[in-house]
Every structure is written in C-alpha cells, then in structure tokens.
Design a protein around this nucleic acid. Structure first.
Lengths: 222, 222
DNA sequence: CCTGTAGTCAACAATGCTGTTTAGTACCGC
DNA sequence: GCGGTACTAAACAGCATTGTTGACTACAGG
C-alpha cells in the first residue's frame, strides 16, 4: 500500500504550482478541442495529477472551464502587455509596424493561447470584458486620435479585424504549412499584406471615384 | 407492439430528406459546440430521428462528422456562389462593395454555417481543399489582376483576412448585441469600416513616408 | 402479392466522465 | 512529535455515449 503510494507520488506541497500545471493542461485540451469538450479526467491525466487533486482545486468541470478562460485572458495580457504595463510612455512611441509585428509574433509563438482566445470569442458568452481586448482597443484609439490613423476609423471594428485575423492566421497556416521555415515565410506574408492593407487599402482608388466619395465622409452621415 | 410502433413513427420513405434532416441537426450541434462535441445521440434527438436511423446513414460518429463538414462546405458554396455558377460573366461585373455586402449578409443570415466553417478552419485539418475558399480566392485574384486591386496584393492573405473577419464578426456581435436592430447596426459598422479599410487603409500615410516607401515595392524585394 | 428498401423501437455491453467519499501518504511549520 | 495542508489511490453510483443487434412496420416497384 505505502509502496504503491510512494511510486506515483508527486510530493508537491506548493498548491500554486499544481494549480498552474492543471490550468496549463486545461489550456492544452481547450486549445485542441474547444471548451465544450474539456474534461476534468483528461486534464488531470495530462497534468500528471490525480483526478481528486483537480477536483480539490476546481470543484466542478464548469469551475475549471471558467478558471481556464480567465487564466488564458490574463496570460495573453501578460505576454502581450506585461512589459509595457509599468511604462505608459512606451506604447505612445510604439510605431504601428512594430505593434503589428508584436501581435503576429505573439500569435505564432502562442498558438494555444490564440486558439483558446478564439474559442472564447466564438463561444456564446463573448469576450467583451476581456482585459486584453479592452487594452488593445484603448491603445488603438489613442493611436488613431493622435493623428496617425485614418480620421473616420471605427476603432473597434478595425481592432477586431486585425486581432482576429492575426490570431487565426498562424492556426490556419499551421494546418497546412509544415516546417518552421515554411511557417515563418507565411507569417511574413501576413505581416506584409497587413501592412500594405493598413497603408494603402486593397482597391485601386482611381477605379472607384464614387466609392471614394461615399466612404470619405465622417461616420454616420447619409 | 404495433401500436407503439405506429405512435412515434415518422413514416418517411425518402432517405434523402432524412439524411438532410440529420445533417441539418448535426450542423446545429456542430455550430454550437464544435466538432469534438458532436454526438450521434444528440444529433438524432435534435433531428427527431431514431438513433438507429442515424447509424444507418452514418456508420460511425466520425463518418457523421466528416459528412457534416463536407455538407457545410457545399452549402456555403451553394448559398454564396450558387446563383452565379451558371453565369461566369456575372462575377466580373460584380463591384467590390456588392461582393463584400454579399459576404456580410451571408455571414449574418447564416451564423451556423459561419461558425461551422470557422470551426473547420480552426481544426487541425485545415480547409485548403474547401470549394468555397478556392472560389473566393480565384474570384479575388481575377478581380485584382484586372487592375481594380492594389498591384502588390497578396491575394490569399487578403482573402483570408476579409473572409475570416467577415464570418467571425456576426458571431462576436451576436454574443453581446441583443436585438436584430442592434445587430443590423453593428453589421453596417463592419461593412463600412471594411470598405474604408480596402479603400484607404487605416494609417495616415503622410505620417509614415518610410513605411510607404518600404511597402510600395513589389512582393519579394528586400 | 411479394420483396427489398427505409425506417422505428428497444435492449445490450462497453466505455468514459462526473462528482463524492474514504483511507492513506508526504511534507512543513510550530 | 503534532496537526494541518496537499496530494494520491481506489472505489462508488449515476449518467451519457458508442456501436450492435433483433424484431417489427411501411411502402414502392415489379
């Protein structure tokens, strides 16, 4: 009995680290199959933790799911804005191509966080309260208001477009571009096209004088 | 025995319609919870069909999942390109704002198909072989090559950006904009910002002469 | 009228997950 | 050394799902 117990024992008296391991495993499962197929059993197995331990940290499956979602949100914020947080001046001097590069790099290096975030967006709950999303919009609004962005920009919509496609792109790419070299190339393609799009749009304006006229007006005018 | 049988009987001798009903129910489940949580039991229940019947049409859960994915792909193609298919000239004269409008309308009116498609994109399989995606890229390429699109456009990347965000937007919106009126307004915001983005980009070009210079060059040049 | 196809109904074993419980082990601070 | 905390192990009932099978029904075409 005692031998058996000794064999598989983890001997971890730090509850925080165990909690993190469980959450990390939950993130992996979440990123793989989506929030609806997250199971405590599978998470515990993956975390190398007894199922009972998982239930001590998270009383129900739902609790684990919610905790994981919050954790994902926090981790994305930290990974993305963590080093800027103490330095409010830094983001002001942040040129757009660097910001976009940062976002793309983050998405490529953290496909699991990206997937989990996108799953959250696609869940019926929405993600409005997400700290990362709020900060992203806020930064973008300040940037646009400083005269660097197109005047009649709908900040939220543009934030959504850039964010969702930047996070989704590496996932899309990862599915059919094997090898890190190929993926790097695809990542560069996205960054370049996104930069060209933000700088020039995608239409030849000369071909569409009436559209240029119509969409030049401030937001809300008929 | 015979009375029981008569009671809950569907009396449907058309296998095709039964198959469609099952697939439709599968789509609903798929759109709600993602492909990994699709269960034959739940689908049969939702379709008002005996579980055994579902198993006659689709021998395993996997078969059902794959069949549903293909069906989604076909339905999106049909709904979106069906009426254009016999008329190759039609798409050539299709102005971009109408094409985008069509896409946005489609996404708003078919959130389930959109969700299912996005789940497919996020699945590890990828969606490269998707008929709809191929057609969308092809149309866009022809359009760009006819001088209406920015010269150095990366068609696939732009197709991805426009497609994914247009399909994802109504889902995002649906989560926190209640009422069809509010949703219609959000939809208009997306369409407008997307049009402005394609026409003008999102940056004030005058502020970024060096970026304008760098990204004006054809694709591939250092 | 008969046969094959399509569908319904019900029951089955096997499996997996949930949430709970009971008993035991390892470690840390007091 | 004691007691509390953290974890493990194993078992439990309840439930859902999977995939299969056997018996029955309804119907259309030959």
């Amino acid at each position: 009995m005692s031998e058996k117990a000794r064999a598989g024992r983890r001997n971890n008296t730090n509850p925080e680290s165990t909690r993190r391991e469980i959450l990390q495993a939950a993130l992996e499962v979440l990123a793989k199959d989506g929030p609806e197929s997250l199971s405590v059993t599978e998470v515990a197995r993956r975390a190398g933790v007894n199922r009972g331990t998982a239930y001590q940290h998270f009383p129900t499956r739902e609790d684990l799911a919610h905790a994981t979602a919050s954790w994902v949100s926090e981790r994305i914020y930290e990974e993305f804005y963590g080093d800027l947080d103490g330095d409010p001046e830094l983001s002001k001097t942040y040129p757009p191509e660097v910001a976009l590069q940062r976002l793309c790099d983050f998405a490529m290096e953290n496909p699991e966080l990206s997937r989990a975030w996108l799953f959250d967006v696609m869940s019926t709950q929405g993600v409005v309260t997400d700290r990362f999303w709020k900060k992203y919009v806020k930064e973008l609004r300040e940037f646009a208001d400083s005269g660097y962005g197109r005047e009649n920009m709908d900040v939220e919509v543009f934030a959504f477009i850039s964010l969702s496609s930047a996070l989704l792109w590496p996932i899309w790419v990862g599915a059919h571009a094997k090898g890190s070299k190929a993926r790097g190339k695809m990542q560069a393609r996205f960054l370049d096209e996104m930069m060209r799009l933000t700088l020039f749009g995608s239409l030849t304006r000369e071909q569409y004088p009436e559209l240029v006229e119509r969409y030049s007006r401030p937001i809300g005018e008929e």
